[in-house]
Design a binder for these strands. Structure first.
Length: 271
DNA sequence: ATGGTTGTCATACAA
């Protein structure tokens, strides 16, 4: 069987439930991980996704900010959502596919929304940047202590860091811009190494090809200027590396009506 | 060097 996993920062799931439905119909992922749902759990648009065959939905939201969810047509068991930085922010949710999920049974998915970090890349001047660095430090501790990639597992999400030179439109011009500063890109590399995660997108489309998943709302013409960044990621545990079959950045979604500033990324495994 | 947009919630704040 194949397992198609998608990740998408939706920037309000209620406002864009229609776009999510379109994506589910057009791209038919088995599991979709959403970030920035900005939606309390009791107002998540469950019915819109269930009627498309996505009966299994895990939500971890809050009013107005952050929020993550997993929408699946395969059955799963919910795992504990982790707390980071002594805050109750909804920035992580995890599930394990159950035995009814066929060859995908037992795969654990971790869905993350890492803090954006504000504008000033100095933790002494900007508490939001300090929070982002602390969050990455705690992801490193988690990787080292809990070995989340010891078996068959997948980590996806909006990690709000574009780690490689060709993950941004201009490496030189973004070196002091939050999301591509050396302190962040180095830390994200340590997060990845802490549990031996494999970067699925770059395994299939290595540098120097430029890969972007986010384009600012502020550009006059996002497509023409193409000043993007790769903020969204799909990582695989070593056990799944050999099953990696294909990857797609759904760039066209950035032109849908009232789009998110992020586009979906899909990764397909042949199991 | 500056401002450019969007979503939420209530008029600033986060991204």
């Amino acid at each position: 069987m194949s397992l198609k996993v998608a990740t998408w920062n939706i920037n309000s799931v209620r406002l864009r439930a229609g776009l999510v439905g379109r994506f589910l119909q057009d791209h038919a992922p088995d599991v979709l991980c959403l970030q920035e749902t900005k939606c309390p759990d009791d107002s998540f648009p469950l019915a819109a996704f269930r009627k498309l065959g996505y009966d299994h939905i895990a939500v971890h939201g809050q009013k107005g900010y952050h929020g993550v969810a997993i929408v699946s047509r395969l059955p799963f068991e919910a795992r504990d959502a982790r707390r980071f930085c002594d805050k109750d922010d909804a920035r992580h949710i995890a599930v394990t596919l159950t035995k009814d999920a066929g060859a995908a049974a037992g795969i654990t998915l971790h869905n993350f929304y890492v803090p954006a970090g504000g504008d000033i890349p100095d933790p002494a001047l900007n508490v939001k940047f300090a929070h982002k660095l602390q969050f990455l430090d705690e992801m490193i501790e988690w990787g080292q202590r809990d070995r989340p990639a010891a078996g068959r597992s997948i980590l996806v999400g909006d990690l709000n860091v574009a780690p490689l030179e060709h993950d941004v439109w201009s490496h030189r011009q973004l070196l002091d811009v939050v999301s591509h500063t050396p302190v962040e890109t180095t830390k994200l590399g340590v997060v990845q190494e802490s549990a031996s995660w494999v970067d699925a997108m770059r395994a299939l489309r290595p540098e120097p090809e430029k890969l972007f998943t986010w384009w600012s709302y502020r550009a006059q013409d996002w497509e023409k200027s193409d000043r993007g960044r790769r903020l969204d990621h799909v990582w695989l545990s070593r056990e799944l590396e050999g099953s990696l079959a294909s990857m797609d950045i759904v760039r066209g979604a950035r032109s849908w009506e009232r789009p998110s500033d992020h586009v979906p990324v899909t990764v397909t495994l042949a199991l």
